[in-house]
Design a protein around this nucleic acid. Structure first.
Lengths: 345, 345
DNA sequence: TTGAAAGCGTTACCAG
DNA sequence: CTGGTAACGCTTTCAA
């Protein structure tokens, strides 16, 4: 196969253009375009001819060209915190599902919980002329988000701000955490340790509030020594638990404010010869895919992060379309498995 | 803020174009373009002027437009099997890292281990005019891959085919599996169950071969009843282990050919009151992030899937650049943790 | 080395 | 409803 120098694509096969379809169908390019986008009514006759031509030439519209001409790329950027994450990974599944179905290309990038990276991601995506940006658990301050959304519409999770060009929503972290804590209280636990998430994180703050509210509602004292920072990561949860154990404080249960920290806690407990749930009850938050395979299976709060992803994508599509229907936040649900039992003492 | 009808972008702020930069710098657009792409030498004087103009106007080249004009999108598509996966997720991390640094946009899509979806993904990406496609553990038959790569260059993992337009590579599954099995044999185990992965999967086949080779090398009999299908998933591993347990076959160790199945096996064992490693030793494959947090921490074969992702991306970039340097396959390594011990009987 | 001009494949505006 | 004609912002001959 010889490759003529002129060809941009390696393959010889000429790419069918809209113009060729128009010629084949005996109409103008404008009409084909209108038919493709439903921009205006096209007579039955021509519509037929166009359809036939498209099929015959197996034409596929070039999004690059239409992006240039139409001023939009039909792609939307998604800023996630980490790619490997079991948490954000699920959100991505939901987002992809919706976007692909709507024929939008998802542009996933990650910002590693760093404000500067997040800004870099926004710049990268804007450079790519995405039609909108979805940010999962944004780090950037509200003002920056609001300001940037003027250029490119945004959907942000784990926040509660909103404007003409920025929608945000969240599930109820507070209630979820309260439910988890109350489950433990209901089992007779009174000294419940709490593993905190990233302190600047909206979700982390709400979960902490829910924990304290449950304590208060049941007239249980709040002991700051029982609350340790775990950074929402497995290693953090492990270190926090070790710290707790070494502090000498008494407790019969641990509420890790996300499942990943619960995994770490379980390992720390295991390494110290403590059994879950016999010695210590353990509750997580998120219900990651792995949690039902933890040993013992983890009691946790489910809120379908995948659903969150779908809602975010749908909201983005609506925002682009100019609709402003606010979306409902999914409700959290307690999933009781084997990591909790009645207080042994 | 009033929005004039003409504006494509919501924001008022005019987007700087290459033409404006040219005007500002007092040179022609062609020169600016050449400077930007290094297509031709530009005199020191003009180069300076252009740099200043770019800075002043904070110009960012429009990839959509250059894509149209240049015939390439500066984006590359990545087909992964599942988004939420702890395995492919790591590969994505590696790919993103390389691509973003090279200023290429990664277009991640997932095909759920289905040939038809994989074909759909390729079509979607081709429609987007990506400059190349990376497929992680492709499902499609070799011929199809080879044929499609004529249009768009490809890098495929878990395969061993190659052509002018298609590079593929893999780590050594066979050796990794052999190492894992021999570790068990070294501990005195003679009846080692094997959890098989997706049977059509190249990696799965190689791992199975490695297992059998180790057995043979140590004069141990191969018992087909000890080999059960687990589909590379947690649930599959659980079901397979249950089946094994119910079959009445005797075994003192399980080699799950990926970590996810090992998680399922651990759960099945736990639910049947069997302890790891006291009653049954367990070995996995992949060394997922979670494996060091499994209880007990899982002995497994590490091969850095993230590294695989980086290699795939680098290879793709080279392929596009016209270079043909084949990349090295990373070597597998046995990570011994707490899920294995000497044979109790 | 540089500029002018002709696209790249669509969409959008404007008459008809 | 439809066709013609400009863009869209950049790259790439082709001359100079």
């Amino acid at each position: 196969m010889q490759v003529p120098g002129k060809l941009k694509n390696y393959s010889e096969e000429p790419v069918t253009t809209l113009e060729m379809v128009a010629a084949e169908a005996g109409v103008s390019p404008s009409t084909v375009s209108r038919f493709l986008n439903g921009t205006a009514k096209v007579s039955e006759i021509k519509r037929r001819a166009i359809e036939v031509a498209i099929k015959k030439l197996s034409f596929v519209s070039n999004p690059i060209a239409s992006g240039l001409a139409g001023g939009k790329s039909h792609s939307i950027g998604i800023i996630t915190q980490v790619f490997g994450s079991p948490y954000y990974g699920q959100a991505m599944v939901g987002i992809e599902e919706i976007l692909i179905a709507a024929n939008y290309a998802p542009l996933f990038v990650s910002s590693h919980w760093r404000e500067d990276f997040e800004l870099g991601c926004i710049n990268f995506l804007e450079g790519r002329r995405v039609d909108g940006i979805i940010i999962l658990s944004a780090c950037l301050p509200d003002e920056v988000l609001l300001e940037r959304s003027i250029r490119t519409p945004m959907v942000v999770t784990s926040r509660m701000l909103s404007s003409e060009r920025l929608h945000s929503f969240n599930f109820d972290n507070y209630t979820g955490a309260k439910m988890a804590t109350e489950h433990l209280i209901g089992l007779g636990h009174t000294r419940i340790a709490f593993l905190k998430g990233i302190s600047s994180h909206h979700d982390a703050i709400e979960r902490f509030k829910g924990y304290r509210a449950a304590l208060k509602a049941h007239n249980l004292p709040f002991d700051p020594k029982l609350c340790v920072q775990g950074q929402f990561m497995e290693t953090g949860g492990e270190a926090a638990t070790l710290k707790l154990l070494d502090s000498g404080s008494r407790f019969t249960a641990i509420f890790a404010s996300n499942d990943q920290m619960a995994y770490g806690a379980a390992l720390a407990l295991y390494n110290r010869g403590l059994r879950v749930p016999d010695d210590i009850s353990l509750v997580g938050f998120d219900d990651l895919l792995n949690s039902s395979f933890m040993i013992p299976p983890l009691t946790t709060v489910r809120h379908s992060i995948r659903e969150i992803g779908k809602i975010a994508a749908v909201t983005m599509l609506k925002l682009i379309a100019g609709e402003t229907h606010a979306s409902d936040n999914p409700a959290p649900e307690l999933v009781i498995r084997k990591s909790t039992r009645s207080c042994p003492i």
